[in-house]
């Protein structure tokens, strides 16, 4: 099961000139427990349960820092992550200072320049279902699932995007990391995303608006590095 949960994005360096291999893993969690795909699991101390069918997001500008210096950067290349996907996406990282790294940062969403410069290929191909065809713009991240609460079923569909003011939804994340071995595990705390969600957003958010901004703010806080 773990193989299914561990992620699509791997950072690894080539073994050249003393450089060290490492990978970056994203693991969706509910508090301390990994989340299985498409299976209802209990949430909190109630009889409520949740089933997640999809969690996908764009990521770019990944950087590793050591004492305030950027020692490795992915550049503007974009990655489309599906945390329930089996096949990992890979990018190459080349730094000999991996062991000294103390912070990692990245941006969730799609760069605004790429939102206004026509058709793109690769992970930015609209065929991946992360582009609003009725309104130019990429969906920065998608969360789809179903919540069972007090016998009521609620389908949740959050397609969060928007690059124009006042509804920009790109968010930067910067996290402290401890000792780096052969992997950096980044947990996505879905419990934070879903906490009391009914009081702030509707079950369906499908366009750039105030709800999308609120969700973007909240998703930004869901990332957490597992310390060794």
């Amino acid at each position: 099961m773990k193989g299914l949960l561990l992620i699509p994005l791997w950072l690894h360096s080539l073994i050249v000139c003393g450089q060290v291999n490492a990978n970056l893993e994203f693991v969706p969690q509910w508090q301390e427990s990994p989340i299985p795909k498409d299976v209802f699991f209990p949430i909190g101390n109630t009889s409520d349960s949740l089933r997640i069918s999809s969690l996908r997001f764009y990521l770019h500008t990944i950087q590793l820092e050591s004492e305030g210096r950027v020692v490795w950067a992915s550049g503007k290349e974009h990655f489309l992550l599906d945390v329930f996907e089996i096949e990992p996406a890979e990018i190459a990282m080349a730094t000999s200072e991996l062991s000294k790294c103390d912070h990692i940062s990245f941006v969730i969403g799609v760069d605004s320049i790429l939102q206004t410069t026509g058709a793109h290929s690769g992970v930015l191909d609209p065929i991946h279902g992360m582009y609003w065809t009725w309104q130019s713009g990429y969906i920065g991240w998608k969360f789809e699932g179903e919540e069972l609460s007090a016998g009521q079923s609620t389908a949740i569909q959050w397609h969060v995007g928007g690059f124009r003011a006042p509804h920009q939804t790109q968010r930067a994340v910067r996290l402290k990391i401890g000792e780096v071995g052969d992997s950096i595990q980044c947990r996505i705390q879905i419990d934070r995303l879903l906490h009391d969600w009914r009081s702030i957003v509707p079950a369906e958010v499908m366009s750039p608006n105030d709800s999308a901004k609120l969700l973007a703010d909240r998703f930004q806080t869901c990332f957490q590095i597992k310390q060794r």
Binding site: Q115, T116, G118, A119, P126, Q135
Partner: peptide, 8 residues
């Protein structure tokens, strides 16, 4: 004005 580029 929903579309911002002729490509799309």
């Amino acid at each position: 004005g929903a579309i911002n580029h002729l490509d799309m």
